[in-house]
Computed example of a mutant assay.
Amino acid sequence: MRKLILSIAVTAAAIASIAPAQARDSKMMMSLEKAMAANDAQSRLGGDVKFYFGKQATPKMLEQLGTDKTSQKTNSFGKSPETACNWAFLSAMLRLQERARELGANAVVNIVSNYKNVEMSSETEFECHDGAMMTGVALKADFVKVKP
């Protein structure tokens, strides 16, 4: 009898391990203003590269230097969705800033959310996907030189 129970338990465990996992992936629209105010984002991003979201008006563009995208994630365990989203957002912004500097750009324009390559443009919000273990923000943008 003991062998039968053990055999059933092993079989059940094997079946459970191959069944598809149901992971949480909550789409959230988050405030750009609040994200830029969190985690010392303003000072960490500095002022040498300017950022323009969606269709925000920009200074006169002098040169287009490229387009790129980034997808940044953070551990969401023990963090509120807002906290995790703001951390992932700052990571994505720092990556855009790093790429702008590599290209010699002084502005990042047309910044849009780009989760799973689906663009969402806004001047006031970004898209964040919060899960039980990870939270992610994906952005796409153009790198340009603008008139100072």
Rank of each mutant, 00 (worst) to 15 (best):
residue 2 R to I: 13
residue 105 A to M: 08
residue 91 S to R: 14
residue 42 Q to A: 11
residue 26 S to G: 00
residue 107 A to W: 05
residue 15 I to W: 10
residue 67 T to P: 03
residue 102 E to Y: 04
residue 8 I to N: 14
residue 55 K to Y: 13
residue 45 L to H: 06
residue 114 N to H: 08
residue 94 L to C: 00
residue 95 R to V: 03
residue 89 F to R: 07
residue 34 K to V: 05
residue 108 V to C: 02
residue 89 F to G: 07
residue 67 T to C: 08
residue 63 E to R: 11
residue 6 L to T: 11
residue 57 A to S: 14
residue 127 E to L: 06
residue 134 M to H: 03
residue 37 A to E: 06
residue 88 A to N: 07
residue 19 A to K: 01
residue 80 S to K: 10
residue 107 A to K: 09
residue 107 A to V: 04
residue 39 N to E: 06
residue 7 S to I: 08
residue 136 G to M: 06
residue 3 K to Y: 15
residue 77 F to L: 15
residue 31 S to N: 02
residue 79 K to E: 11
residue 132 A to T: 13
residue 128 C to F: 05
residue 112 V to S: 06
residue 99 R to A: 01
residue 98 E to R: 13
residue 25 D to Y: 12
residue 18 I to R: 05
residue 139 L to D: 01
residue 82 E to A: 15
residue 13 A to W: 15
residue 105 A to E: 04
residue 77 F to S: 13
residue 51 F to N: 09
residue 104 G to P: 02
residue 124 T to C: 02
residue 86 N to T: 04
residue 101 R to V: 14
residue 16 A to P: 09
residue 103 L to K: 12
residue 108 V to N: 03
residue 7 S to D: 10
residue 34 K to G: 00
residue 72 Q to D: 08
residue 20 P to V: 09
residue 81 P to R: 05
residue 58 T to W: 00
residue 29 M to C: 09
residue 56 Q to Y: 05
residue 123 E to K: 10
residue 29 M to Q: 14
residue 77 F to V: 14
residue 124 T to L: 12
residue 57 A to M: 14
residue 11 T to M: 05
residue 81 P to H: 01
residue 122 S to Y: 12
residue 111 I to S: 06
residue 56 Q to L: 10
residue 21 A to E: 13
residue 7 S to C: 09
residue 15 I to D: 03
residue 108 V to I: 05
residue 84 A to Y: 10
residue 73 K to P: 00
residue 40 D to M: 13
residue 73 K to L: 10
residue 91 S to C: 09
residue 67 T to F: 10
residue 112 V to Q: 09
residue 52 Y to S: 02
residue 116 K to H: 13
residue 120 M to R: 13
residue 97 Q to V: 11
residue 12 A to T: 05
residue 107 A to N: 05
residue 130 D to V: 15
residue 59 P to T: 08
residue 131 G to L: 01
residue 51 F to C: 10
residue 136 G to C: 01
residue 20 P to R: 08
